[in-house]
């Protein structure tokens, strides 16, 4: 299946992916209106140190520890994509603790949030991929 891959060679650390991600989860048409004067909570994060930077988001692991650890069954893996049922999430954060990539984070309303490849919103290409100015984040099929 197609996944989001990142390449630190081309990551400029511009953080635009974070903003496109945050924008994708709003229902606004205009990014300025959507993100003006708010603190964003993106599902993708730039990690950077000593001039190296890259974006981190859910890897949609084949054997996901987050799903395994979820005590309410809010996290499920279907067709290779790990999604969250916000109604079931009780905010125990077991998943956050168990994710080896740090790709799961708390959301503003107490439930957790993570990259769901924009399937619930945009469809098609994830917004972080579309918004990356340097091709450092790609959405493609690779031999597993």
């Amino acid at each position: 299946m197609k996944r989001v891959y990142v390449n630190e060679k081309w990551c400029l650390g511009c953080h635009l992916c974070e903003y496109y991600c945050a924008f994708a989860s709003t229902n606004e048409k205009d990014m300025a209106r959507a993100l003006k004067d708010i603190r964003i909570h993106p599902r993708i994060r730039i990690e950077e140190k000593d001039g190296i930077s890259f974006a981190v988001s859910c890897r949609h692991c084949d054997e996901p520890l987050c799903v395994k650890g979820c005590i309410t069954g809010a996290l499920t893996r279907k067709d290779g994509i790990i999604t969250i049922d916000r109604n079931r999430c009780i905010g125990c954060y077991t998943c956050i603790l168990s994710c080896p990539f740090g790709a799961v984070s708390p959301s503003e309303d107490g439930a957790i949030q993570k990259c769901e490849l924009c399937i619930k919103t945009a469809g098609g290409t994830p917004k972080c991929v579309e918004g990356c100015p340097n091709g450092a984040i790609v959405f493609e099929e690779r031999g597993e």
């Binding site: 400029l12 974070e18 300025a32 993100l35």
Partner: peptide
């Protein structure tokens, strides 16, 4: 300033 969301990409780039 009505459109600036302070993402700081201008500063970084």
């Amino acid at each position: 300033y009505d459109r600036c969301i302070v993402c700081r990409v201008c500063e970084r780039q």
